[in-house]
Amino acid sequence: MAEAPSALVYVVEDDAEVSRLVVMALQDFGFMTETFGDGGSVLRRLRSEKPDLCIVDLGLPDMDGIELVREIARRCSCGVLILTGRGHTVDRVMALEGGGDDYVVKPFEPRELVARVRSILRRRGAGVPGAAPLQRRHARFAGWSLDCAANLLRGPDGTETLLGTAEAQVLRAFLERPHQILTREQLMGSRELSPLDRSIDVRISRLRRKLEADPQNPKVIKTVYGAGYMLAAAVEWE
């Protein structure tokens, strides 16, 4: 059975230590993450990519967090979990009425936070690591399309190829973050990848043989020397 595609979670938190703790907890359970230190940066990011869920701190340096929750809800159909030090009932009510799905007060237990994230995603039908796929999601890029639920890659000429789970996992990581440099650790979903582990390079090579007209001169999956790899194509989700 194909694995469920991992959900992409945006963490909007100006406290670097709290952000690190949240990201570590999410990645330990297979989620993909992207972090933002203020509201403006996440709103700019939403123009090009939509996450499955946003975790939002209300005490941001550039704008009111409740207003950010409302703006995210207006621009995106993703789930929203509020993570804040504000425990007042009025803040909770305003945040939930403004578009939040759940409300967690700091300090928090990381495993409980992950449980709440998973609960929101299940209700919304997004990809929860370790859970059965709740809906089929298709991504189109550079003339290709990927059925993420079936790991089925369809070429510009209509030819279909069934990807192995490992290859599909890497391709999905690229599709979730087009035009971004991804490290080998991000692509493998591991923070402690050995420098001698070349498995990711093997997977990239296999994908290039399928996607590239000239795998030795790749145009879709590019190598950024000393940094990682990047998908150089626009992605549309259906």
Rank of each mutant, 00 (worst) to 15 (best):
T89M: 15
V90W: 15
V93N: 15
L96T: 12
L96N: 10
L96M: 15
L96Q: 09
G99P: 14
G99H: 03
G100Y: 04
G100C: 09
G100P: 02
D101Y: 05
D102N: 15
D102Y: 15
Y103W: 12
Y103D: 05
P107C: 10
F108N: 08
F108A: 06
E109G: 02
E109Y: 12
E109V: 13
P110V: 04
P110G: 11
P110T: 08
R111T: 13
R111N: 09
L113A: 11
V114R: 12
V114H: 13
V117D: 05
V117K: 11
R118L: 11
R118S: 15
R118Q: 15
L121K: 09
L121S: 01
R122Q: 07
R123M: 09
R124D: 06
G125H: 04
A126E: 09
A126D: 13
G130L: 04
A131R: 11
A131G: 02
A132C: 02
P133I: 01
L134A: 15
L134D: 04
Q135R: 15
Q135V: 08
R136A: 08
H138N: 06
A139P: 03
R140S: 00
G143Q: 12
W144T: 00
S145H: 02
D147C: 13
C148P: 02
L152V: 07
L152E: 10
R154N: 07
R154W: 03
G155D: 11
G155M: 09
G155V: 01
D157N: 12
G158L: 04
T159H: 10
T159R: 12
T159I: 10
E160L: 01
T161Q: 09
L162W: 12
L163V: 04
T165D: 14
E167L: 13
E167G: 03
E167I: 03
Q169G: 09
Q169T: 13
V170W: 03
L171P: 02
R172V: 00
R172Q: 03
R172K: 11
